[in-house]
Amino acid sequence: TYYTVKSGDTLNKIAAQYGVSVANLRSWSGISGDLIFVGQKLIVKKG
């Protein structure tokens, strides 16, 4: 599943919304830090 980052989103908010960890969200999407951008597509795998 892809999630497109919206204004005001954080990795914590997105992870909580999908019931996954921030570490997994980073790993799946190839992100090393906490910086995400509006319009960026993140990969989300539901448990």
Results as ranks from 00 to 15, higher is better:
Leu25Asp: 00
Ser21Cys: 08
Lys41Arg: 14
Gln40Thr: 06
Gly33Ser: 11
Val38Thr: 08
Trp28Ser: 05
Gly33Lys: 06
Leu11Val: 06
Ile31Asp: 02
Val44Asp: 03
Ser27Glu: 15
Val22Ser: 06
Val20Leu: 08
Lys46Gln: 14
Lys6His: 07
Leu35Asp: 15
Lys6Arg: 11
Gly19Ile: 04
Thr1Ser: 12
Ile14His: 00
Ser32Asn: 11
Ile31Cys: 05
Ala15Ser: 08
Ile43Leu: 15
Ser7Asn: 11
Asn24Cys: 15
Gly47Lys: 11
Gln17Asn: 10
Phe37Tyr: 14
Ile43Asn: 07
Leu11Met: 07
Gly30His: 09
Val22Glu: 09
Ser32Trp: 09
Phe37Asp: 07
Tyr3Arg: 01
Ala16Asn: 11
Lys46Leu: 15
Ala15Asn: 00
Lys13Leu: 11
Asp34Leu: 07
Ala16Tyr: 10
Lys45Val: 11
Gly30Pro: 04
Trp28Gln: 04
Lys13Trp: 10
Gln40Asn: 04
Lys46Phe: 14
Ser27Cys: 14
Lys46Gly: 14
Ile14Asp: 00
Phe37Ser: 09
Ile14Asn: 00
Gly39Gln: 03
Asp9Tyr: 01
Ser27Arg: 13
Gly39Ser: 04
Val5Thr: 03
Gly30Val: 06
Ile36Asn: 01
Ile31Arg: 00
Ile14Trp: 02
Ser27Gln: 14
Ile43Tyr: 10
Thr4Arg: 08
Lys46Cys: 14
Trp28Asn: 05
Ser29Arg: 02
Leu25Cys: 03
Gly47Gln: 13
Asp9His: 02
Trp28Pro: 01
Ser7Leu: 14
Trp28His: 03
Leu42Asn: 00
Arg26His: 05
Tyr3Gly: 02
Ala16Leu: 13
Gln40Leu: 08
Lys41Pro: 05
Lys13Gln: 11
Leu11Arg: 00
Ile31Lys: 02
Ala15Asp: 00
Gly47Leu: 13
Lys46Trp: 15
Trp28Gly: 02
Gln40Glu: 06
Ser7Phe: 13
Gln40His: 03
Ser29Tyr: 03
Tyr2Cys: 12
Gly33Ala: 08
Val20Ser: 03
Lys6Asn: 07
Trp28Glu: 04
Ile14Gly: 00
Ile31Pro: 02
Tyr18Ile: 09
Leu25Ile: 15
Gly19His: 10
Leu11Ala: 02
Ile14Arg: 00
Ile43Phe: 11
Gly33Pro: 03
Ile43Lys: 09
Gln17Glu: 13
Tyr2Glu: 11
Arg26Tyr: 05
Phe37Lys: 09
Ala15Glu: 01
Tyr3Ala: 03
Gly30Phe: 07
Ser7Tyr: 13
Tyr18His: 12
Gly47Ile: 14
Tyr2Asp: 06
Gly30Tyr: 07
Ala23Leu: 08
Thr1His: 13
Lys6Asp: 04
Tyr18Lys: 04
Gly30Ala: 08
Ala15Leu: 03
Ser21Gly: 05
Gly39Val: 04
